[in-house]
């Protein structure tokens, strides 16, 4: 019984942290899916969101959870601006040029933050930081529950946007076939700007949402970047549903592995799964399922 309880608690913790992983990664996969560009500065945009939330919340005395939507909007504008000034000129450039551009952007953001804010560890204090919810004998830290709730809401909103709105459909059309979409009157440049803006909005909002349980410093993006890429590649590059599922899977594997393995090896099983997925399954776990369903529709 005790062991069962431990396993259940670990799965629950894994799902909570996993939904956060999904939220921080989904923008990366969205940008790739629409634009075919890998944004290596994604971790640094998370850091920018965290700093934004920190300063906004200390200046106005508001909880980062309340500020998150505003940070998301600011993140959207920042993303759109970055797309127009940095990404647009290299959208047709060789992939190596795109990598250098986004990697360089990440370095500039991190070191810029260090130069402006200093190398300090900053964090906010919220009344629920020490609180826990109990359900069926399991315990959930309030900060993680709120972050996970945000992740679920954002996933639903993103799904509604992509599937139900004209703009979302146009964005998917651009992703599928830029030329055909353009012939039908969709402006791909506008789509790219919005897609990049949305990707950055999602990750900056995530930064605000996770701030209550962690702390921010200029180089924190690097702590998350490996998880982001694992989630995105495991889920299949460009697949939003894949990133969400992979986020949860990574969270649960990490959490369960600590039951058996020392904490320092918590990423080992994740990377073993990651490696197997890369070797065995082309383009991520979900592509098999997707290929099957595509065939099904055509027949």
């Amino acid at each position: 019984m005790d062991i069962l309880n431990h396993v259940a608690q670990s799965v629950a913790n894994g799902l909570l942290i996993g939904s956060v992983y999904a939220l921080i990664s989904v923008g990366l996969t969205l940008i790739f899916g629409v634009m075919n560009i890998v944004n290596f500065a994604h971790g640094e945009f998370l850091m920018v969101g965290m700093f934004g939330a920190y300063f906004a919340s200390t200046a106005f005395g508001l909880d980062p959870l309340w500020i998150a939507p505003l940070i998301g909007i600011a993140g959207f504008l920042l993303g759109a601006l970055v797309e127009r000034t940095i990404i647009e000129p290299i959208i047709k450039a060789p992939q190596s040029a795109q990598i250098i551009a986004t990697v360089g952007l990440g370095i500039i953001l991190a070191n810029g933050a260090a130069a402006i804010f200093g190398n300090n560890f900053l964090s906010v204090k919220t009344p629920y930081q020490g609180e826990t919810f109990s359900l069926f004998g399991l315990h959930f830290a309030a900060t993680f529950v709120y972050a996970a709730a945000y992740a679920v809401v954002m996933a639903v909103l993103l799904a509604l946007f992509l599937n139900k709105t004209r703009f979302g459909k146009a964005m998917r059309a651009t992703a599928q076939n830029r030329g055909a979409a353009q012939l039908l009157g969709i402006d791909p440049k506008r789509m790219y700007m919005v897609a990049f803006g949305l990707g950055v909005a999602l990750v900056t909002l995530a930064g605000s949402v996770i701030l209550p349980y962690t702390l921010v410093y200029p180089f924190i993006g690097q702590q998350y970047v490996l998880i982001m890429f694992t989630v995105v590649v495991l889920g299949g590059l460009g697949s939003i549903r894949g990133a969400i599922i992979a986020g949860l899977v990574v969270g649960v594997i990490q959490s369960l592995s600590t039951l058996l393995l020392p904490s320092e090896l918590q990423n080992l099983p994740v990377f073993i799964v990651f490696f197997i997925a890369l070797v065995l399954i082309s383009g991520g776990v979900l592509s098999r399922v997707r290929n099957a369903s595509v065939k099904l529709k055509r027949s």
Binding site: R172, V233, L237
Partner: peptide, 27 residues
Amino acid sequence: MFNDALTTSKQHSARRVAWRVAAVGTA
């Protein structure tokens, strides 16, 4: 929930890109 059609045009290069991204990301 998602139609997930964002990548259908890129199936062929998906594995190559996935590897490259994984390699660069790790590095």
